[in-house]
Design a binder for these strands. Structure first.
Lengths: 417, 417
DNA sequence: TACCTTATGATTGTTTTTATACATAAATTC
DNA sequence: GAATTTATGTATAAAAACAATCATAAGGTA
């Protein structure tokens, strides 16, 4: 037994502990024991190889609750990386992230989504390789790949659905294609769900029923219940942009129906209305630029959009009774101009029991960064889940560091005193 | 150690097994081992005391999968009873059930819900005692009490909310009051959620995303995801009856708002419209009676109501993307007269991805029986849940039957050959 | 009927996990 | 600064759970 090149065989059960640490269910050895239903001795026994293999680190901070503070355990954010890409209608935004996740390096390329899946995926693969080189990481270190798509996605099958903007993508086997080029797990998710996940984990982690509404050029929503994305039966949940309201002169939506929320309050619809008044505007960003310079017509349109959004939000509140609603997307940069209408309609229309403690807030994260972090988060959570953790550990087994335990106990941790 | 009067101390861990059996997660010893993550030996060891204490029985049926069929394990449905009550606006429906659940005895009493909580709860307690006597069971055998209320309910707090029909009930401590008279767990739930639960468990147990719509005198809905009632943050989820649609001449709802779904399609609204045409009708039952004799005006109103219901259902489908929608309540007895409108609007308005595999069906269980069974089911599931099972076992510990294991192995089970 | 398959019962020694104890560490409170 | 509280490290005997094995049971299939 030479311990310089020997691969460390992690004892069975360590995976479950790592999974708990990754999910945040256990921050200290004591809370891990409670969460796992195991004794302190067993936790200690299982942590040792996780430290030795470099999966787990000790945080310097320590929250005291009266006595000796617990030593915070956390995932070693550098034992692997994720690849994240946001496929937009005209641009692709890509990044390499660590496992916290933080963006290590990113890039934006111009490419029309209608170029078709093979062209776009090939470009994504190229860019990923490039970005990996730039941060000096290898394909072997890639925990998984997360792709965000501006369309309904069947999450299990990792396929885009419906003949939307994504011409040629319908039912295309994205996972199969990617795995021919990367030996990593490939997850595909709707872009709104990724923004939802990111906003939720960073700012509202303990909220049971969370609703995120994206008001951008298009309109959509994401739902999180009990900490998990609610996808519905086919992954089509949260599709509020194409709920229809009756009215005189119901506008034609780009989906072909009349009077959809998006055709009344989406960025493209507001741009349409501004153009009719002689302005130059094509998308949500153009609207916001006009709002920023206090253009009254733009502000008025955004406020009207807020009320339309409020109408549909009130319906969703009646159905879901969320504890928190966050409005994101480019239009949400108009802050109160948009939110006041939402608040007005929700409080007017929904049951007092449902609105009494309801919070309605603007998103705090940058949409594009949030989306990439959401994609990374999804990859991390899926690969660190109890069902997959053992496979993940097996892939990342490293040569054992000689005498890791002694070195750890000799100099417990760096401190500032 | 005399084994005739000795109370059997169940070894720790048996509770988890019983919980799995009760939830249906394990039907045989082998599948239990898998579900619990324990070995066959351990399962056998833990089952013995469960048999001895009378918690578990062996079913006669045995499903073969090529070799020796597994012996089906199931909860002994007679080791306790539940008490269930459906508080309606003018009547109270009560029952004692076993743990399957089946109704053992039931009764209906006329009592206006506006008599106030103390009067009504006192009457319920009296009736429960009476019903227990009639089936020869004692208070000690009561696993729990389930109450269904025609109003929004805060499930955790077991309180009714909002100044609705239930005058004087707002924030009344139902659990506290009941527990002064019965030493049993008291659960209070919205009536629609109970009907939802019952319909789901009996007819659609494996559906991931389930939506139940109650179309009766009022209109409401219940949502089940991953086998659990979705209640939202305060228990107000599924309140679709008071979603508002704009239109000319929006009718006034009994909630005070204009244009609610209920004011357009609820039984009381249809009765209002029929009275305006000279008929005599006051509630959903009257409407259905007219439909049954093919009264054209009634049929036309029900069909129009179906389309209104379809409008709101389409919205809910866009938000939730359910796999199955069941329409229940008295109006659903009109079957296709009501359902065709729902189907029409849902297929017309919702995303094809969401409707491709969507099933829309009429409820199969009798509303009132379903509600009572739902209340019983809720009690059983809550008392058999992993978190509470050990308390439940402790309450129901019985004197050990002398030499229970030997008697079991001597005559393994009754068979029909 | 013989054979195959799967489920279960019973027994064994081995391995894992636990409870317990005592010592140490690091914060708060008095 | 001492006492208190909480978290952790280490060690050991006791308990629990396991895998492995053989035997039996009960269905289907050739």
């Amino acid at each position: 037994m030479d311990d310089s090149s020997e691969y460390l065989a992690l004892p069975p059960g360590s995976g479950a502990i790592l999974s708990l640490i990754a999910s945040g269910a256990g921050q200290s050895r004591a809370s891990l024991a409670q969460a796992a239903g195991l004794s302190r001795s067993t936790i200690a026994e299982r942590l040792a190889p996780l430290f030795a293999a470099g999966f787990v680190e000790e945080g310097a901070e320590a929250l005291s609750s009266g006595g000796r503070p617990a030593r915070i355990l956390r995932l070693n954010k550098n034992f692997g990386v994720t690849l994240a890409a946001d496929v937009g209608e005209s641009h692709i935004h890509l990044a390499v992230t660590d496992l916290e996740p933080n963006i290590l390096v990113e890039n934006v390329v111009s490419l029309d989504v209608r170029s078709g899946p093979e062209t776009i995926l090939a470009r994504i693969v190229d860019e990923f390789c490039d970005l990996l080189d730039r941060v000096g990481r290898t394909k072997r270190e890639v925990l998984g790949i997360g792709l965000g798509m501006p369309a309904p996605v069947d999450y299990e099958a990792a396929r885009v659905f419906g003949p939307s903007v994504m011409l040629g993508w319908d039912d295309f086997d994205i996972r199969g294609w990617m795995r021919a080029h990367f030996e990593a797990h490939v997850l595909v998710e709707n872009d709104v769900n990724l923004m939802t996940l990111s906003e939720f984990r960073r700012f509202w982690p303990d909220v049971g029923q969370f609703l995120f509404i994206k008001a951008g050029t298009g309109i959509g929503s994401g739902i999180i219940t009990d900490g998990r994305i609610y996808r519905g039966a086919q992954g089509a949940a949260g599709d509020i942009g194409h709920i229809q309201f009756a009215s005189d002169n119901a506008p034609l939506c780009r989906c072909g129906k009349l009077g959809c929320v998006e055709a009344r309050a989406g960025g493209w619809a507001l741009a349409r209305d501004l153009r009719a008044q002689g302005f130059t505007a094509h998308n949500a960003r153009d609207i916001i630029n006009l709002v920023r310079i206090n253009q009254p017509e733009a502000i008025q349109l955004v406020r009207a959009a807020g009320r339309v959004l409020g109408e549909v939000t009130a319906d969703v509140v009646s159905v879901l009774n969320p504890a928190v609603i966050v409005i994101g997307g480019v239009l949400s940069e108009a802050e109160e101009h948009l939110l006041s209408g939402v608040r007005e309609l929700v409080y007017q229309r929904s049951l007092p029991l449902a609105t009494r403690k309801l919070q309605i807030a603007a998103a705090r994260s940058n949409p594009s960064v949030g989306l990439l972090l959401g994609a990374a988060q999804l990859v991390i959570e899926s690969q660190m889940a109890p069902a997959t953790i053992d496979r993940t550990i097996a892939r990342y087994r490293r040569p054992a560091i000689p005498r890791p335990l002694e070195s750890l106990t000799d100099s417990p941790r760096s401190r500032s005193d």
